[in-house]
Amino acid sequence: MKKVLALVLFAAIIAAIIWLLIHFKGFGGLGKDSDKGEGKNGTSVSEVVEKKETTTSEEATEVKTEKSTEAIKTEVISISISKDEYIYNNNMISFDDLINEIKSKDNDIQIELSIDDTAAKNTVDELTDKLDELGYKNYKKLDK
C-alpha cells in the first residue's frame, strides 16, 4: 500500500512539473501564448537591452536635472533633537533662538529633523507644531 501511494505521489509531482513547464514556456516556446509576437527571431535580445539602457539613461538625466534644479532653489537646514535639546550647526540652541533662525529663512526651505532615540516626544512635537504654525511644510523626520 505504501509503494502504491508513493508511486501516485511521484506521478502527481511529475505531472505538476510538466504542467508548470508547459504553462510558463519552459519548453522553448511550446507553452501558453507561444504564437504571439512578430514571428521567429522578430526581436533580438540586444535590441531589447539597448532600448532599456536608452530609457534608463534618459530618465537618470531627467532625475539628475530635477534634483540639481531643486538643490539650487532650496536650502536644507539640519536640526538634531536629543533628549530635550536642539542641535543646530553643531551647537546646542534654545527653542526661541532656533525658531528665530528658521524664521529668517524662506518658507520653501527644506528642514531635516534628526530625531535621536532619547529625544523627548514633547520636544519633537513642540518644534513640529511651531513649524506647522509658521507655514513650514517641507520638513522630514529622520530617525537615527
Rank of each mutant, 00 (worst) to 15 (best):
T74C: 04
L21V: 04
E75M: 03
L21K: 10
K144T: 09
V49S: 13
S34C: 12
F10P: 01
Y86S: 02
E70W: 07
E70Y: 07
I93Q: 03
Y86P: 00
V48A: 13
S82P: 01
N138I: 00
L113S: 03
I102L: 10
G135H: 09
I17Q: 10
L131K: 02
L9I: 08
G42A: 15
N90H: 13
S82A: 11
K3R: 08
K51E: 13
E75K: 15
K140D: 05
T65M: 05
S114V: 09
Y86H: 02
K103R: 14
I13C: 05
I22L: 15
F10M: 14
W19L: 09
Y136W: 10
Q110S: 04
K141F: 00
V48Q: 15
A16K: 09
V76T: 14
E53C: 03
N90D: 14
K2H: 10
K25P: 01
T43L: 08
G42I: 12
I99Y: 06
D35P: 01
E75S: 15
D143L: 13
K137C: 02
I87Q: 08
N90Q: 12
S34Y: 14
F24H: 14
D117E: 13
K64F: 06
A120S: 01
K64G: 04
K3T: 12
Y139W: 11
E133D: 12
K67G: 02
S68I: 04
S34G: 15
D106Q: 14
I22Y: 15
S80I: 03
N122R: 03
K130P: 04
I79P: 00
A119I: 03
S104C: 03
I111T: 00
S78V: 12
E85S: 04
D117R: 12
E50I: 08
N122C: 01
L7M: 08
T43I: 15
G31E: 07
G135V: 07
L113A: 04
I13K: 02
Y86V: 02
K36E: 08
N89T: 10
D116A: 06
K73N: 06
E101M: 09
D125E: 14
E133Q: 09
V8I: 15
I115K: 09
S44D: 10
A15Q: 10
V63H: 06
E53V: 14
L30N: 09
T56R: 15
I79H: 03
D129Q: 12
M92L: 12
I87E: 12
V49Y: 08
A6T: 05
E70G: 07
T74L: 07
A12K: 06
K130N: 08
E133K: 12
L7E: 05
K51Q: 11
L7P: 00
S82G: 08
L21Y: 07
Y136I: 06
D116F: 04
D84V: 03
L21P: 02
L113M: 07
A15I: 09
T74F: 02
I93N: 03
L134Q: 06
I79Q: 02
T54E: 14
K25L: 06
D35W: 13
K25G: 12
A71P: 01
D116M: 04
L20H: 12
E126I: 00
I17F: 09
D84I: 01
S68W: 06
D125H: 02
I77W: 00
S94Q: 07
D106P: 00
V76G: 01
A11Y: 03
K36N: 09
